[in-house]
Amino acid sequence: MGQNPTPEADFTAAVDFEKVQQEPKFQELRRRHRSFVFPMAIAFLLWYFAYVLLADYAHDFMSIKVIGNINVGLILGLLQFVSTFAITMWYVSFANKKLDPIAAEMRSELESAAVEPQAGEKN
């Protein structure tokens, strides 16, 4: 990117990113983002691999019929769909409420700071 300057790159050339990185507001944004996505990623991967191991090694358990011909394996498989949809909706609502407002605020601050360099000093 650095070798191929674009209008976007020029626009932020005046921004001191190292300073922005140390700002409490940015630290808070990063903390919120990471403290949601990391535990969630670990949780769904564990749940997925628990399912994979059960389907792979616990055939008898997965073959127990629950309702009619629908067995434990099918229900756990469909629950993977449910959990995927649920995590998706959870993340979207989290990001809309907790991440987007800070990101938008910082963005407009940095943009106005780039237009008027003095304004950036207040942060």
Binding site: G2, P7, E8, A9, F11, T12, V15, F17, E18, V20, Q21, F26, L29, R30, H33, L99, A103, M106, R107, L110, E111
Partner: peptide, 23 residues
């Protein structure tokens, strides 16, 4: 370069710069 790391991290989370790419 720590400046580049800072720039990437700030850009990635805030979207500064990238959002103007539409114009």
């Amino acid at each position: 370069d720590p400046a580049k790391q800072a720039e990437m991290e700030v850009r990635s989370l805030t979207g500064v710069g990238a959002e103007k790419a539409v114009d």
